[in-house]
Amino acid sequence: MLEARLSQTLLLKKVVDALKEIIAQGTLDCSDNGLELQSMDNSHVSLVALSLASDCFEKFHCDRNVSLGLDLKSLGKVLKCANSDDAVTIKAVDRPEKITLSFESDGKERTADYELKLLNLDQDHMEIPKKDYTCYIQLPSSEFARICRDMSMFDESLTIACSSKGIRFSAKGDLGTANIQLNAGTAMDVSIEVQEPVTQSFAGRYLNTFTKATPLADRVKLYLSEERPLLVEYPIEDYGHIRYYLAPKVNE
């Protein structure tokens, strides 16, 4: 059985907000090590992977691996019933048909329990090879969100060009063109490591969806290589991450 307690529901709210616009449903795999979820969006253009280590939780007990098929909209609705600073305990039995979420206010003046039905989902797990990327950028997550938002006014397609000179985001559409260049520096705290320059185009609406994870982390990491999907990683303190993978657009 699984029993996992977080001292604040806020983290779970942020995680579900970061997932629910890219995937409607997903299977949360629970083990002694913690929680993991991996799922592609319906169009098979992007993939999201969540990892939360057991030590993220105030209490974590999982004596047998259990998979929870979750409808994320429904989970989001349940989480709306809780205050951000309520403690939350997630419970599931072995081979569960439902999970229980219990919320406790500070001092346990108010407790609320919700049962959520689980789904039987087909699990397509992708094998992602662990190769090094040729470009690695770290920047404030709010800046990345701003760039994605501003660029999407111009075109659906956003080009990222990374070289030793810096990283350049550009879009060209009916309105005109937009170019944003970021250079490595300490004021905004941008770091850029480039082994080989990369230029790739991506669908802006997916990047904008990834930025729903902005409240989870102050910094975001971008990993690029020619002919490979982009990896956008939001660390969750020292406990894990949300990673988004996005297939590039290619010229015919």
Partner: peptide
């Protein structure tokens, strides 16, 4: 115009 590639072009299902 560039076409959107599929993620399964890069990664395989296990």
């Amino acid at each position: 115009t560039p076409i959107q590639n599929d993620l399964t072009e890069y990664y395989s299902l296990v």
